[in-house]
């Protein structure tokens, strides 16, 4: 356990030394909310949103953005690099199993998302009256499931990509359409029906739906949970099957 905590601390330190990572996962989501919150149309509440204002949705989207960047770009690039450069291989010669480093990476990324969530919702609530989720536990579950979907895809990318650069390129390629379906450019609720239905089956959109439901105090839709668990199980299993340690 102490070894795991030490690995976790080390991974955390290293990732914060990467200014781009720190900026895009911790600062950028808050900045996005701070900027969007000052756009007048963001305060509007179109009837499709079921009582929410556009800015209320964007708090979740900003967090989804962090989850997408971490899960689809950061995680696979880091893990593929660890393999490519023999970091996992070196670890395999010590009493510590390289899997523990993977665990530390995943935990570190999860903690980053949670910190980002606290930052985003604190600023959104204090500055723009975005409501604190009616069901905090369901909201936490939504964040965790949203992470598990994106992280599972990231792990699969890390497993199959030959290098860190390739992993990052594929992740970036997936990031934009998935963020589109999640509603980053136009809220899902305002999309044409067909785009909404396609979006139902994408991980970041399903995660966004769960977070919105939790914000309103609604129980999560079965389809959101099923889709996210599906990504977790299928991509996770494929990642385990295909992962090469060197």
């Amino acid at each position: 356990m102490t070894v795991f905590l030490k690995l976790l601390r080390t991974e955390m330190k290293i990732s914060l030394r990467d200014p781009l990572y720190a900026f895009f996962t911790l600062l950028f989501p808050v900045l996005l909310i701070a900027i969007l919150g000052n756009v007048p149309t963001m305060q509007e509440a179109p009837p499709e949103l079921g009582g929410l204002r556009v800015i209320d949705l964007y708090a979740g989207l900003a967090l989804g953005l962090a989850i997408g960047i971490i899960g689809l770009q950061g995680l696979p690039a880091v893990l593929a690099t660890y393999r490519e450069r023999g970091i996992l291989r070196r670890l395999a010669t010590t009493p510590v199993r390289p899997g523990l480093l993977l665990g530390a990476q995943l935990t570190m990324n999860l903690i980053t998302v949670l910190i980002s969530a606290v930052l985003v919702y604190t600023v959104a609530n204090l500055a723009f009256d975005v409501p604190i989720p009616e069901s905090p536990l369901l909201f936490l579950l939504a964040v965790l499931l949203n992470c598990s979907g994106a992280f599972a895809i990231g792990l699969l990318l890390a497993a199959v990509a030959p290098s860190g650069k390739t992993a990052n390129a594929i992740g970036t390629f997936l990031f934009f359409p998935l963020m589109f379906f999640a509603g980053l450019w136009a809220p899902r609720e305002l999309m044409p029906e067909v785009l909404q239905r396609i979006g139902d089956f994408t991980p970041l959109a399903a995660g966004q739906d769960m977070m919105t439901d939790a914000l309103l105090g609604h129980s999560p839709e079965l389809i959101s949970i099923t889709v996210l668990l599906g990504y977790l199980v299928i991509c996770g299993a494929a990642a385990v099957k295909f992962f090469r340690w060197e």
């Binding site: 030490k6 080390t10 290293i14 023999g86 970091i87 291989r89 070196r90």
Partner: peptide
């Protein structure tokens, strides 16, 4: 080993302290 590297942003001291906890 040949081709067994470390994380670029890890300092020498941190690497030694980390690996010390393994044994």
């Amino acid at each position: 080993l040949q081709e067994g590297e470390l994380q670029d942003k890890l300092t020498v001291r941190e690497a030694l302290e980390l690996y010390s906890t393994f044994y």
